[in-house]
Design a protein around this nucleic acid. Structure first.
Length: 335
DNA sequence: AAAACTATCAACCGCTCCGGG
DNA sequence: ACCCGGAGCGGTTGATAGTTT
C-alpha cells in the first residue's frame, strides 16, 4: 500500500484542472473520510463525469483515482473475501480462453473486479513459477514466455480436472488469445481442425472454433467440456457459449439436450459473418451428432494464423443473444 | 526476538479508444 | 481531418501483513 501524499503534477491523470496546476490532488491510500465522501456522493448522484464527481464530492483526487476507488472498493455490489473454488476454476478457465483480458473475465464474475482477478492470477502464476523452477530453466531460446504461460495454464487445468481436454484447450487458447504466436507443435493439428463448411446455410457464418466442434470425429472426438459441470456451475457471456453449446451437442450422455441445442441452433443462430482466408481444400465427411443427422461436406480448411487478431475474428462478436434467449435452462453465474 | 522473505492487494502509470467540438 | 479530454484497460509498483529462518 502506498503512503498518502500530495502531488503537484498528477501524472497519469488528465484532469484538466490538475494539468493546469489549478488544484493539488492527493495520491496514495484513501482515508475513511475520502471514502465516505465519494460513497455518499455516488449513492446520492450516481455515475457521471468522474472529473466532476471528484470536484463535486469535495475530494482532492483526480477523477481517475475516484473511478478506481469506486470500482475496486466502494461499489456496493462488490463481493468481499477470497475467491471460492468455483470462482477460481472459472478464472483459470476464462484465462485460458481470454488471456489477460481481466475486465472481460471480471465481467463474468459478478461482484469481482478486474484488479482482484489480476492480482489473484499473478500470485498464482508466481507460485507456479516457483514450484516449477526447473521447468522455467528448460525453456528453450525459441520458446516465448507466452508459450510457457500457456503450458502453465494447461497444467493448471489438468490439475484442476477442469472442463476441457488438452486438445481443445490448445485450440481455444490459440484461437482466442491474440497475443500468442505459438510455435508449438500443436499449430499444425489446429490448422487441420479448423474447418469451414460450405453448402449448408445454417453453418455458413459459424466461426472456425464452432465448426471444429461440429466436425469432431464420429468416434466421439474429444469432449470439449463437462456438461454437468457446465450446467451445475452456470456459464454465460459472449465468449463461452459456443464451446459450451457444442459440448452439449457432443455430449453422448444427454442426447436429448444435444438435439435440443441443435434445434435451437437451426432456429436461432445469427452469427456474424466473417470472411475467412481459405488456404487449402479438404473434404471431410461429417457425422453430426454421432452421424445420425446426415453428412455435411466440409469444403474449406481455414488456415490458422493471426486471424483472431484482425478485423475478422474478434472475441465477443458472435451474436448468440437470440440463441440464449431461447435456452432458458442455461443458468447464470451467481455464487 | 528480529531479520529476511513472501504474499497480498490497493493504487499508480501509461497507453488506447472513443466521442465531441 | 484533427485535436482534446474522459473513460477504461492492463502492467507494474510498493506498502503492509504474515510466515519462515
Amino acid at each position: 500500500m502506498r503512503k498518502p501524499d500530495q502531488c503537484e503534477k498528477e501524472k497519469g491523470c488528465n484532469n484538466n484542472m490538475v494539468n493546469k496546476g489549478m488544484m493539488k490532488t492527493r495520491k496514495g491510500l484513501w482515508s475513511p473520510e475520502e471514502d465516505e465522501k465519494l460513497m455518499n456522493y455516488m449513492l446520492r448522484n450516481g455515475h457521471g463525469c468522474w472529473t466532476d464527481i471528484a470536484r463535486n464530492a469535495g475530494l482532492q483526487r483526480c477523477g481517475k483515482s475516484c473511478r478506481l476507488r469506486w470500482i475496486n472498493y466502494l461499489r456496493p455490489d462488490l463481493k468481499r473475501g477470497a475467491f471460492s473454488p468455483q470462482e477460481q476454476d472459472i478464472i483459470i478457465h476464462l484465462h485460458s480462453v481470454l488471456g489477460n483480458r481481466w475486465s472481460q473475465i471480471a465481467a463474468r464474475l459478478p461482484g469481482r473486479t478486474d484488479n482482484e482477478i489480476k492480482n489473484f492470477w499473478n500470485s498464482m502464476i508466481k507460485k507456479r513459477l516457483k514450484t516449477n523452477k526447473s521447468d522455467v530453466s528448460t525453456i528453450s531460446q525459441n520458446d516465448s514466455i507466452g508459450d510457457f504461460c500457456v503450458d502453465a495454464s494447461r497444467e493448471i487445468i489438468r490439475e484442476h480436472g477442469m472442463f476441457m481436454s488438452i486438445h481443445d484447450h490448445e485450440i481455444m487458447i490459440n484461437c482466442m488469445d491474440s497475443s500468442l504466436t505459438s510455435t508449438t507443435t500443436t499449430s499444425s493439428s489446429i490448422t487441420n481442425n479448423l474447418m469451414f463448411m460450405n453448402g449448408h446455410d445454417q453453418f455458413d457464418h459459424l466461426p472456425p472454433l464452432v465448426l471444429d466442434k461440429i466436425n469432431c470425429d464420429s468416434n466421439g472426438g474429444s469432449s470439449l467440456l463437462n456438461i454437468s459441470s457446465c450446467l451445475d456451475q452456470g456459464v454465460y457471456g459472449d465468449v463461452l457459449e459456443v464451446p459450451y453449446m457444442f459440448n452439449m451437442v457432443n455430449d453422448n450422455t444427454n442426447p436429448e439436450l444435444g438435439n435440443r441445442v441443435i434445434e435451437e441452433i437451426n432456429a436461432n443462430a445469427t452469427f456474424d459473418h466473417h470472411e475467412l482466408d481459405n488456404k487449402t481444400t479438404h473434404h471431410v465427411n461429417h457425422h453430426f451428432n454421432g452421424g445420425s443427422d446426415g453428412d455435411i461436406k466440409v469444403e474449406e480448411v481455414v488456415g490458422f494464423g493471426n486471424h483472431w487478431q484482425g478485423e475478422s475474428y474478434r472475441i465477443g462478436e458472435w451474436d448468440l443473444e437470440g440463441f440464449f434467449a431461447n435456452v432458458s435452462s442455461i443458468p447464470y453465474l451467481d455464487f
